[in-house]
Design a protein around this nucleic acid. Structure first.
Lengths: 226, 226
DNA sequence: GGTGCTTTTTGACCAGGGTCAAACAGCTTG
DNA sequence: CAAGCTGTTTGACCCTGGTCAAAAAGCACC
């Protein structure tokens, strides 16, 4: 882990992130004034559940897994975050403790925003408060979606939904490249890697062709019917 | 469904609710100024996923289930809400659409706060914004907890955790009354009623005695080890 | 193109929990 | 107290998905 300064590319990503993107430019520029940046190797732990933290994190590049650990040591992913995504924002309002652990799933660059400063801003600047509220609403909805997926759908259905969520709504046939290893996708969907693999092979009969990280969908409607 | 006016008891519950309880008294009194109240029979649907709503709901008495429906019609509970609890607060910030359906699990009385008014207040009054932020942080954490429970723990473990969460931390032996039917508890834990029943009977060997709605714990530590 | 990794797939097996049906309470109500 | 309901428990069965082990693909680096 190494600390560095914001590059102009970093700034651009920050300004478009799911939190700062909601703010007027002048405000967001002020917020990132004192941002710090750090790089992390694959598998580096950023913080553990229960750790005291007082910062909001933003992924600048790479991939971060947010997870909880069971008493047998198994890890359950709560979220997988890509460039531009924000995490640990609840901690700064909720007793400054992380509600989950975070670990780089590949080499990553992470920005941090000071919690105290953000809390002050949230009080003095309605735009900032509003941005937090919207961010948190989206967060709740995302986790709700995950929970509903888990409780209502089987593995192949979840995979089908994931694929469909990565697909332009117009075309009936298309293809895209997985943004991470199947490994990680499995965790995100709450599956063992083997189960993901089997799900893919079951979807083959609905016109899904998997070659390495490339996913090809021959017939969108067949997939939706699944 | 019948509409009525706030009784003084209703007011007391509202003022202590998980949202208004965070506000200075003068503010919260102002907020409930224009609250409306309605009564609902068991199984009444308050709204369905996707419905346009622009209100925040508060349970004054009774019990409300928040759930999503799968395409086969199965319902998965996302939350079970008791008196004093707030729901649907994301909707007023997220395009005014319900992200889940809500249904009374028993005869219930519900208060509603106008969404437009609350949004205005969130902008003009930092206390209100702050209260929303904290409410939403708690909400995210609660759903995260649920998801982690689902992914990490077996049915008996979830039930054990539920029991422990209802137990004073001091005593090693104690008992309490379930606040709702086992039916509902099963849904809340993401289980079929039969699975809940089996989980209870497995916990018997760890000193949990179930008689109707009464749960008796003989040995807290045995339960924690489970 | 070979060599040695890591990631993914496949197979075999097993456990958790869903489902259906039937037996059992616990309550109301007549 | 009997008769009905409704909610809960138990049993039998099956399906999904987890786990372990081994084969197969990919991929990077000679």
């Amino acid at each position: 882990m190494k600390t560095l300064r914001l590059t102009s590319n970093d700034r651009a990503i920050l300004l478009k992130s799911s939190f700062l993107g909601r703010l007027p430019r002048s405000t967001s520029e002020a917020v990132i004034e004192d941002a710090t940046v750090s790089t992390h190797e694959e598998d580096d732990v950023l913080f553990r559940q229960g750790d005291g933290i007082d910062e909001v994190f933003v992924v600048l590049s790479g991939l971060v897994r947010l997870y909880r650990v069971g008493k047998d040591g198994r890890e359950a992913d709560l979220a997988v975050l890509q460039a531009g995504e924000v995490f640990a924002e609840s901690a700064i309002f909720l007793g400054h403790h992380a509600t989950a652990s975070a670990r780089a799933a590949e080499a990553s660059i992470i920005a941090r925003l000071d919690g105290r400063r953000l809390r002050q801003l949230a009080v003095s600047n309605p735009d900032v408060a509003q941005a937090f509220i919207e961010l948190l609403c989206h967060r709740s909805k995302m986790v709700e979606d995950l929970l509903a997926q888990d409780r209502l759908h089987t593995a192949p259905e979840r995979v089908a939904n994931y694929i469909l969520s990565n697909c332009p709504s117009g075309s009936t046939s298309f293809s895209f490249r997985l943004p991470f290893q199947k490994n990680v996708l499995a965790g995100k969907l709450g599956l063992a890697p083997e189960a993901l693999s089997r799900a893919f092979s079951k979807l083959r009969q609905s016109g899904v062709v998997v070659r390495g990280r490339m996913i090809e969908i021959r017939d969108r409607h067949a997939l939706e019917r699944f």
